[in-house]
Design a protein around this nucleic acid. Sequence first.
RNA 1: GGUCUCGUGGCCGAGUGGCUAGGCAGCGGUCUGCAAAACCGCGUACAGCGGUUCGAAUCCGCUCGAGACCUCCA
Length: 493
Amino acid sequence: MSTEINSKLYITNSLGRKKELFEPLNPPHIGMYVCGPTVYGDAHLGHARPAITFDLLFRYLKHLGYKVRYVRNITDVGHLENDADEGEDKIAKKARLEAVEPMEIVNYYTHRYHQQMDQLNVQRPSIEPHASAHIIEQIEMVKKILDKGYAYEVDGSVYFDVSQYSKNYQYGILSGRKLDELMSNTRELAGQSEKRNSADFAIWKNAEPAHIMRWPSPWGDGFPGWHMECSAMGCKYLGKEFDIHGGGMDLLFPHHEAEIAQSTIANGKSPVRYWMHNNMITINGQKMGKSLGNALSLDDFFSGNHSALEQAYSPMTIRFFILQAHYRSTLDFSNEALQAAEKGMKRLMAATSDVKQLKAEKAAPNLNIEAIRQDCYAAMNDDLNSPIAIAKLFDAVRIVNTVKDGYTQINPLDLKLLQELFEVFVFDILGLQAENANQDDQLLDGLMETIIQLRQEARQRKDYATSDLIRDKLTALQIVLKDGKEGTSWDKK
RNA sequence: GGUCUCGUGGCCGAGUGGCUAGGCAGCGGUCUGCAAAACCGCGUACAGCGGUUCGAAUCCGCUCGAGACCUCCA
């Protein structure tokens, strides 16, 4: 076990809105649940933020020596839509439009989601349960809540009785909402007439005849209410009480509030110790949303095929950009900001590669790499402050480059620390990876070596016409030559 | 309308009472045949107004602006 497990990790708990020392229930094991995607469409930029945020947490906890069981659901039972196709479930709607089976849609977009997360180097969760595969568990949970008198059935639907709950528990404990305000502020919606109070929410919903996705239940054919799956599956795989539950801030209310309420009744205790919420993403200062027409898909970014994008942005650029902001801040996407991130990341990644080639000098003075390392841990321990960790890594980048260019010398111990620093933080924790992986291409390497040698010879005989021709031609092929003190290296783009 | 969050230099983005991150862009320099890369140096920013304080970007109040949730959404 690494010694880092003893370091004090503080995270902001949405329950109380304060930074708290993270203390697992059953160390070294940690249970962590994150709300996953609804697989009825391509992942957009908004999906990248929680995926990367909690991937960072997953990686960091593992790095600290914990055994983490990370559960992220696939929502595939669909939920009510609030538009003209009222009552029809999202997946069923899409299936009918495209004349395919709902499960086909689910499979297709689940695969797409996995592909895109892989590209972002997001590690797969330990368990990725499908809501549709846990209908029984959800029904059982509804039964428990009914038995305990905190829900009521109306025409095949079961609603959670929020006012009953409020008599003994605090509904709004997570979101800071007051029940009476909720009662007076909630808008009239279809089907609401069945509810005793507008704040009540469905935990089982009766399926209309046209509704494709449906399951038998004690209350007739229907489907689970949209908060049920996370409660049922979280409990099944992580227990009645577990360490961390994450998701976007938009899920705070009503989704997570409802989860707390229903789990508290069904299981007798509040389900989660630390609630963590990542902030939203804006595009050019505007909220990203389907209704605004600016919900860029991840593929749009990777390919650059969208009128709002000046160029393609690689998955690692997106990842780096997201990590350069703290997860609890809103993050604004723009071409200018993305291009800045791309350049910065290239400089960082070049150093991670260059650091391996450096030569140590025994007599070199102490460069205090240890201090940078400590600062990186301190940043991560302070509510996963990846932007600060990255800033510190850029200090290390400067050291790599000064040593590389011969302005500074480095002793063996510092060099070892420096190499470990990049390995641990850049790759293991931040989860960045080299792009343009051309290390394996021996043919290309050999060719480039030859070309660089020819150019070098031309330069030595002051045949600059030839050397510049070589450089220009390579530039046109998106290959950049870098003349350094130790010779010439090259890179794509 | 209700609840909440935020407003930092050209852009992005850390920082929550004094020690003034970082990236990108820009300017000057070193290096180079030239250029690129790299390195060195340069910007004294914190929406506005008022208050608390020896001292505030950081605390309080007001104004203006932006956003989130309250309704499917990461």
